[in-house]
Design a binder for these strands. Structure first.
Lengths: 123, 123
DNA sequence: GTAGTACCTTGAGTTAACTCTAGATCAAGC
DNA sequence: GCTTGATCTAGAGTTAACTCAAGGTACTAC
């Protein structure tokens, strides 16, 4: 069978508006419709959506996600290209992680400093 | 002495526009001026800016950074409050890191899958 | 003292990514 | 067959965080 847009909104946490927007903008491949034009989402659509969320949350801009989805739609001969994109994204995320870890250090340093100030005040 | 807004823009990588915007919006404490109204940044302003960048890049929204800067401006009796905020932010960042690491797994899984497909094609 | 560059303010414009509105069609239960 | 709630499209509106423009003042070097 398939799912309606409302069900997909429910399970992904994306709004109905956002789902239609994603499709209109080519951020996700277009979804099958029934005879009266209502979207019927398949399991594969859900999987693609989940992967798109991964790309989004790792900071890939919508315009690049579009490029990836375009490759996806074009079929198997774009796989090497897709591997390239994903590997670059992986490196991106890795350096984000490193950056964030150094910010954790920074936050921690500040907290320690503040605690020292407090300790000296209460002497 | 002190630095002009242009020099600060140069060293922080923020634009002059952004620096003035940050001050207008209370995202950073207001900077001293000379007799003709020109901003003279001190070393401490630079340090605050660098810390603000840390908060921003770890995803703290401008409105919350404002709150933190407000506490900063109010002096030492807000230190406990600041510790709270920073510790919460640290936890935030830690869960961001965890999330990102799971996304790295996901990206990697996809790459592996694609590579397998390629390998099977070339058999 | 003037040319050229950096700085000032106020307020409007931009960009990305949604988010909502209006007006119409569709589907399910009574 | 009628009501109620979900879905449709096209296009306008929103939000956060800048970014720029216009019109004016200040500083530096000749």
């Amino acid at each position: 069978m398939g799912y309606t847009i409302g069900e997909i909104a429910e399970t992904t946490g994306l709004s109905i508006h956002t789902l239609r927007y994603y499709e209109k903008e080519g951020i996700m491949p277009s979804v099958k419709r029934n005879n009266s034009g209502i979207r019927i989402y398949e399991k594969t659509d859900l999987e693609v959506l989940q992967f798109i969320r991964c790309l989004k949350e790792t900071g890939m801009p919508v315009i690049d996600i579009k490029k990836f989805v375009n490759l996806l739609v074009q079929g198997d001969h774009t796989i090497e290209n897709r591997i390239d994109l994903l590997q670059k994204q992986k490196e991106n995320v890795q350096s984000q992680v490193n950056q964030l870890m150094s910010y954790i250090q920074m936050l921690d340093g500040k907290v320690q400093l503040y605690k020292t100030i407090l300790a000296n005040k209460n002497e």
